[in-house]
Simulated scan of single mutants.
Amino acid sequence: MTLNSWMYWVYLLHIVNIIRGHENLSRRNATSVSQSSDYRNQTAKYGIDGITTQTEYFCAHTAVNQSEAWFQVDLGEPFSLKTIRIVYRDEGYWRPYRFRYFYLDLSNSSVNGSTTTDRKRCYQDNTTVPDLPPSIINITCPFVARYVIVQNDYFGNDTHSTGPILEICEIEIFGCSINCNGECETTGYCAECNTNLWGENCIQSCPDHCNGGICNRTTGSCDFGCRNGTWGIFCNLTCSTNCADDVCEIKNGSCVNGCKGNFDGEKCEVCDAFHYGENCKESCGQGCINNTCFANNGTCSLGCVENFVYPKCNSEYHLMTKSHEETNKAPYIGVGIGVFLLLIFVLIGAIAVHRVFLKEKHLAAELVDCKRINPKIDINQPFLMTILESNYL
């Protein structure tokens, strides 16, 4: 194997390693190119046509006698770049003389919208006469940018210079979407997505509550769990507010660390066996068997212990009995008082009747005596009755 063929295979292996894991962004449909001027019809498009032949007519070529020469690749949007490969004109008899002192910049603004101080300088050639720069060069440039700019301001005093000129046969820009986490395939498909992203091109956002912002690359589901307070495959469901520590099972929403307060159940949505009422704040009756009751109304679920009164078993039986006895006596007392008052009224009535009877009896006796003493007296005279009655008032 000759030296030249050995070098070719070393170079080819190097290129394969560069390409592996990254896409040639120059070949994307959205990529466009331009240059400072055109020599004949050798426009900037020759620089990204996929032909790496290094003879003049296969290369983009800027015009002679210009004050500057630049070649720009617009990727259409920022990408995470890795390596840039430039293939320059080299025909054996025409070496890359005009490639001396070129520099490679990255920018998010076009060449006409930026200055060299605004850009990121990735490479600067410092080759001096009589030496020549390499006609094929691979430049590592791990930055994020939209524009790749090759520029040359060299005014050489050698016979091959007619002002700054660029003769770029092919430029290959290897990188991935800024949404990729590391490498991507040559098709641009991300091997892995950055945190919070998923989908083929890693352009879809993971659900807000995925643990650590990480979700399944293919489905967007939260495979690594949810942030506290949420559950479901996309962590879009809310845990019960009664879950302790606001943590619940991602698959079914059951409370992992138990319940707050007096709540119970898988999702802590019912009262425990010992409480009832709104927010489970009421305790079951002290006389409930096992201290348990129904959550909706506090009725003792197993009945009462001895001497307590169902349904809530809050009061003891003997206290309730005494209260009932006292309550039952009241009607009898009322009846007794009524009878007593009735007897008094009857007695008073009887006395009054008896007095009237005695009065009439005495009047009759008096009239008899008057008639006996004086037979001529008319006992039916009203004045005589009045006189006699006045004696009994």
Rank of each mutant, 00 (worst) to 15 (best):
D272A: 07
V309T: 11
E278T: 09
N307H: 12
A350R: 12
G303H: 06
V247H: 01
C280Q: 01
E366V: 13
S283C: 03
E269G: 04
E326M: 09
F263E: 00
F340L: 15
C313F: 01
G265Y: 09
N290S: 15
N297R: 05
L358R: 14
L342A: 07
G285C: 04
I351K: 00
E306I: 05
C304Q: 01
F263A: 00
F345R: 06
F263I: 06
K322L: 14
I348W: 07
E366T: 11
C280V: 08
E316Q: 13
Y317P: 06
C370W: 12
C284S: 03
T327L: 14
S323K: 12
G334S: 13
V346G: 03
I373N: 08
N297W: 02
D246W: 06
N257Y: 15
Y310T: 07
V309D: 02
V339D: 05
K359G: 09
E266P: 13
E269V: 06
D369G: 09
E366S: 11
N297K: 06
H354W: 14
D264F: 12
G265W: 04
P331F: 11
G265S: 09
Y332T: 10
N314F: 08
Q286A: 02
G334Q: 13
N297C: 05
C370A: 10
S254K: 11
L358K: 14
A273S: 10
C255T: 14
E269C: 03
Y310K: 07
G285D: 00
C293N: 01
V368A: 03
F340T: 14
N262E: 07
K312S: 04
L341H: 10
H354G: 02
F308Q: 00
F274V: 05
V335Q: 15
K361Q: 12
V309I: 15
T327K: 14
K312P: 05
L341F: 14
S283A: 08
H362N: 13
V305C: 01
V368E: 02
K312H: 07
F357T: 10
I373G: 05
Y317R: 12
